[in-house]
Design a protein around this nucleic acid. Structure first.
Length: 715
RNA sequence: GGGCGGUUAGCUCAGCGGCAGAGCAUCUCGCUUACAUCGAGAGGGUCGUGGGUUCGAAUCCUACACCGCCCACCA
C-alpha cells in the first residue's frame, strides 16, 4: 500500500461525503436492524438569505458529533435539515440588494416582490446546502424542509385557527413597538435598549414643572400624574386645571398613580398614552378619569394634525422646534443637556422605536407560558448549561402578550379576512380560517372579504418547527421522532425560538418538543471580539475548511467550546488541529508499514503488556464516552487528542518499535496496536469524520462495516 | 433598577476541597527509516483583592473591585 506522507483533506472530503450519501444511512429508515430507538435532532434552519458563517459551523459540528455518536451507539439517528425563509430578516437583506441596484420595493407589485425573494432564497438554499455538506453534516437530506413548505405553512394556519377558536387570539388597538424606518411593528424581543444622552426638558404646565425627553408629544398629553402619597401635589389630585400651552389654553386633569417616581424631576409627569408604554398603562388604570388617547405621531414618524402647526414635521425636528417655541413662550423652565436614559431602538437599524397605537394580532400568552414553565421546572426539558434555566424561567414568568403581526411582504400571510360589509372602525368582523378564503361573512352573509395584509412574525411559524417538520397528525413520523432528543442552538435565540417552541409544542401536541436544550455561545476572534464584516475579523468556515480541512475546523470549534459560553477561534488554532489530523494519518501510515504481514483474522497470544495497553484504552474510551453522554464535547475531544497523540503515538508506538522487531512478540503487538487504533478511529469519528473514514476504508480489520459511520461504538 | 457569567502561564481556556494543568506561543537541541503539519527537553503562575470556614482553599462562604452579557415601563 502506498500511503502518502501527508493527508490532503481537500482531495478526499468530497468523495467521502459522497460515499456516506450513497449508503443512504443519513436516513434513519435505511440503517441496519441493530438501530432501534430514535435519536432526533432538528437542525436550526439557517437563513436562506446569505451563505453560512462561522456560527453555523459551530452548530453543525456539535450536532453532527451527537448524531454520529448516537448512530454508532445503535440509535436510529435522525438529523433533519432545513432552511429558514427568515421573513423580516430576508426582506431587509433583499431590499438592501434592491437599493444597490437603485430599486425599491415600493415601486413593485407585492406579488412580483414575493416572487423575486422566493427565487433569491431558493438560490441561496442551494449554496447553503452545499456548504453544510462541506462541513461533513450527516443529516437526512431526503427530509430537507423549507420554512415555507406547504406542510409548515399549513401547520401555521391550523395552529393560528386553533388558537383563535380557543380564544387565545385577539386583535386590538394597543401600543406596539413600531420602527418608522422599517415600517413594521415588532414584538418586545425585537426591541433593544441602549443608553443614550438626550436633553431633558423641564416644561411649565400651570403650577407644575414636568420633566420630559419628548416635548413634542405634549400635544398628546391627556393627564398629569403624581404619586398618590406625594404630599407636595396631593391637593391637585382629581382636579382639573387650565394650563397655557403652545396651542393656547387647555384643561388637563391631575391623577394619582403608583407608577410615578417621586424622585424623578419634580415628581409630576405628563401622561401621553398614545406614545409611551408607561403612560398607556396609566391610562388603562384610569380610563374613567381620562379622555381617549390623542395620537400626535403617525406611522411615518411625522407629527399628526393634532400637533397643530407642527403637523407633518418629523419627530426629531418637531422636538427641537417645540422646545424652542416653549422657550420663546416662557414655558420652558430649563434643560438638562446631558441627561442619560434608556432608549428603545430597532434591533436592526438602531433607530428609535416609536410606540404607536395600532391594531395588531396578539396571542394571549399566559395559557401557553404556564405549561412551558412547568415542563422546565419538572425537568421534562433539561437546559444545558444549567444557569440558563433561571434565565428561561424569569423570562417566561414575566412574559407579555405576543404581537405576531408584521407589516412585511415576505412571510406567511395571516389567514384572516375582514368583512367590509359589516365591519366598522370600532367593531371589525374578522374571519380566521385554515388558509382558504371564506365564502361569505357568517355575520351578514356578505362576500366582500379582504384578507389582512400583514404576515406572521417568523418566529410564530418557526416556533412550530419541531412538529411541523415531522408532521403531521396523520403521518407516523411524528409518533416515531417526536419529541426530539436534543435542541442544540445559540443562547441568543433562547427566547425568540426555544421558548416559543416549548410553548407551542406543548400547546399543539401536549408534549415538550425536546428533552434537552443545549445552548452554545457566539464565536469570537482571538481578542474575544465579535466577528463582523466591518471589523474584518471574519473567519469564513468554508474557506478555512478548504485550506486546512473540515476535520481541523471541527476540532477547533469543539475543543474549548463550553456550553453557554462564547467560543474563540483563530487560524493558528485551526492550523494546530490540521497537524493533529495529519498526525492521526501518520499513525495509520506507521501501522501499515510495520504490519504488512498482519492477518486481521488471526488471534495471536497477547503479552501481559499488550493486555495492559488494551485495558488502558478501554478505560480512556469509557471516560470519553461519559463525557459525550454528559454533553462535555470539549473534554471528550481534548482527552481523545491527548491520549491519541501523547500517549498512543508518543509513547505506545515509540515503545512498540523494538517490540515489532522481535519476531516472538511481533504478532501480538500488531494485533494490539491495530485494535487500539481502530478504537481511536471510532472514538474520533464523531469529531473528525473525514480522516477517520478515509483510514477506516483502508484498514485491514477482521469485521468491517460498509462505513465507519455505522460502526459500533467501542464501549 | 433586577439577574447571570467571568477574573488561573504571554494568548485561549480546563481544573471546582488534597503536589497548580492543557493547547497555542516562546527558548534549546535533533531532518533518528510514521509524521519537521515531527521528536526530545526547558522556561514561565502570590489561581482579581480583603476577610472567614477547614488539618488542608484556585476550589466552599462573605465583602469588594474590574470586565462582559441578559432582562427592565424611570418620563
Amino acid at each position: 500500500m502506498n500511503i502518502p506522507k501527508a493527508y490532503k483533506p481537500n482531495k478526499k472530503e468530497k468523495g467521502i461525503y459522497k460515499l456516506w450519501e450513497k449508503t443512504g444511512h443519513f436516513n434513519p429508515e435505511n440503517l441496519p436492524d441493530r438501530h432501534e430507538d430514535p435519536f432526533t435532532v432538528l437542525m436550526p434552519p439557517p437563513n436562506a438569505n446569505d451563505p453560512l458563517h462561522i456560527g453555523h459551523a459551530v452548530f453543525t459540528t456539535l450536532q453532527d458529533i451527537m448524531i454520529r455518536y448516537n448512530r454508532m451507539q445503535g440509535k436510529k439517528a435522525l438529523w433533519l435539515p432545513g432552511a429558514d425563509h427568515a421573513g423580516f430578516e430576508t426582506q431587509v437583506v433583499f431590499e438592501r440588494k434592491l437599493e444597490e441596484k437603485g430599486k425599491t420595493r415600493l415601486n413593485m407589485e407585492r406579488e412580483e416582490f414575493y416572487k423575486q425573494v422566493w427565487d433569491y432564497t431558493q438560490e441561496n438554499r442551494k449554496v447553503v446546502k452545499k456548504q453544510i455538506k462541506k462541513l461533513g453534516a450527516s443529516c437526512d437530506w431526503s427530509r430537507d424542509t423549507f420554512t415555507l413548505d406547504e406542510k409548515v405553512v399549513e401547520t401555521t394556519y391550523k395552529t393560528f385557527k386553533k388558537m383563535a377558536d380557543e380564544g387565545l387570539i385577539y386583535r386590538r388597538k394597543r401600543l406596539v413597538n413600531y420602527c418608522t424606518n422599517h415600517e413594521t411593528a415588532f414584538s418586545d424581543l425585537e426591541v433593544e435598549h441602549v443608553t443614550r444622552k438626550t436633553p431633558l426638558y423641564y416644561i411649565k404646565y400651570g403650577p407644575f414643572i414636568l420633566a420630559t425627553t419628548r416635548p413634542e408629544t405634549k400635544f398628546g398629553d391627556t393627564a398629569i400624574a403624581v404619586h398618590p402619597e406625594d404630599r407636595k401635589h396631593r391637593k391637585y389630585v382629581g382636579k382639573e386645571i387650565t394650563v397655557k400651552t403652545l396651542l393656547g389654553e387647555r384643561k388637563i386633569k391631575i391623577i394619582a398613580d403608583e407608577a410615578v417616581d417621586r424622585e424623578f424631576g419634580t415628581g409630576a409627569v405628563k401622561v401621553t398614552p398614545a406614545h409611551s408604554e408607561v403612560d398607556f398603562e396609566i391610562w388603562q388604570r384610569h380610563k374613567d378619569e381620562m379622555p381617549e388617547p390623542i395620537e400626535v405621531i403617525d406611522k411615518n414618524g411625522k407629527m399628526t394634525e393634532a400637533a397643530g402647526p407642527y403637523a407633518g414635521m418629523p419627530v426629531k425636528k418637531a422636538r427641537k422646534k417645540v422646545a424652542k417655541d416653549l422657550k420663546k413662550e416662557g414655558l420652558l423652565q430649563r434643560t438638562d443637556e446631558d441627561y442619560e436614559h434608556n432608549l428603545s431602538v430597532c434591533y436592526k437599524c438602531e433607530k428609535e422605536i416609536e410606540p404607536l397605537l395600532m391594531k395588531q394580532w396578539f396571542i394571549d400568552i399566559e395559557p401557553l407560558a404556564k405549561p412551558a414553565i412547568k415542563a422546565v421546572k419538572k425537568g421534562d426539558v433539561e437546559i444545558i448549561p444549567d444557569n440558563y434555566r433561571k434565565v428561561y424561567l424569569h423570562w417566561m414568568e414575566n412574559i407579555k402578550d405576543w404581537n405576531v403581526s408584521r407589516q412585511n411582504w415576505w412571510g406567511i400571510e395571516i389567514p384572516a379576512w375582514k368583512c367590509t360589509d359589516c365591519s366598522t372602525e370600532e367593531d371589525e368582523e374578522w374571519i380566521i380560517t385554515e388558509g382558504e378564503k371564506p365564502e361569505k361573512c357568517p355575520e351578514c352573509e356578505g362576500n366582500n372579504l379582504e384578507q389582512d395584509e400583514d404576515v406572521f412574525d417568523t418566529w410564530f411559524s418557526s416556533g412550530q418547527w419541531p412538529f411541523a417538520t415531522l408532521l403531521s397528525e396523520d403521518e407516523p413520523e411524528l409518533e416515531k421522532y417526536y419529541p426530539t432528543s436534543v435542541m442544540e442552538t445559540g443562547y441568543d435565540i433562547l427566547f425568540f425560538w426555544v421558548a416559543r417552541m416549548i410553548m407551542m409544542g406543548l400547546y399543539k401536541t401536549g408534549k415538550a418538543p425536546f428533552e434537552t436544550v443545549y445552548l452554545h455561545g457566539l464565536v469570537r476572534d482571538k481578542n474575544r471580539e465579535k466577528m463582523s464584516k466591518s471589523k474584518g475579523n471574519v473567519i469564513n468556515p468554508i474557506e478555512v475548511a478548504e485550506r486546512y480541512g473540515t476535520d481541523a475546523l471541527r476540532m477547533s470549534l469543539t475543543i474549548g467550546n463550553m456550553p453557554g459560553k462564547d467560543v474563540t477561534i483563530s487560524e493558528n488554532e485551526i492550523k494546530g488541529y490540521r497537524n493533529y489530523v495529519n498526525k492521526i494519518w501518520n499513525m495509520f501510515r506507521f501501522l501499515m508499514l510495520r504490519c504488512e504481514d498482519y492477518d486481521p483474522g488471526s488471534s495471536p497470544k497477547l503479552s501481559k503488556k499488550d493486555k495492559k495497553l488494551m485495558k488502558e484504552f478501554e478505560k480512556k474510551a469509557k471516560e470519553i464516552t461519559s463525557d459525550i453522554e454528559n454533553f462535555e464535547f470539549s473534554h471528550a475531544a481534548e482527552s481523545l487528542y491527548h491520549y491519541s497523540w501523547h500517549r498512543f503515538a508518543d509513547e505506545i508506538i515509540e515503545e512498540s518499535k523494538s517490540v515489532l522487531d522481535d519476531e516472538k512478540k511481533k504478532k501480538g503487538r500488531q494485533k494490539t496496536l491495530i485494535t487500539i487504533f481502530a478504537g481511536i478511529l471510532k472514538l474520533a469519528h464523531p469529531f473528525i469524520p473525514f480522516v477517520t473514514e478515509e483510514i477506516y476504508q483502508k484498514m485491514p480489520l477482521d469485521e468491517k462495516k460498509e462505513t465507519l459511520m455505522i460502526e459500533e461504538w467501542p464501549v
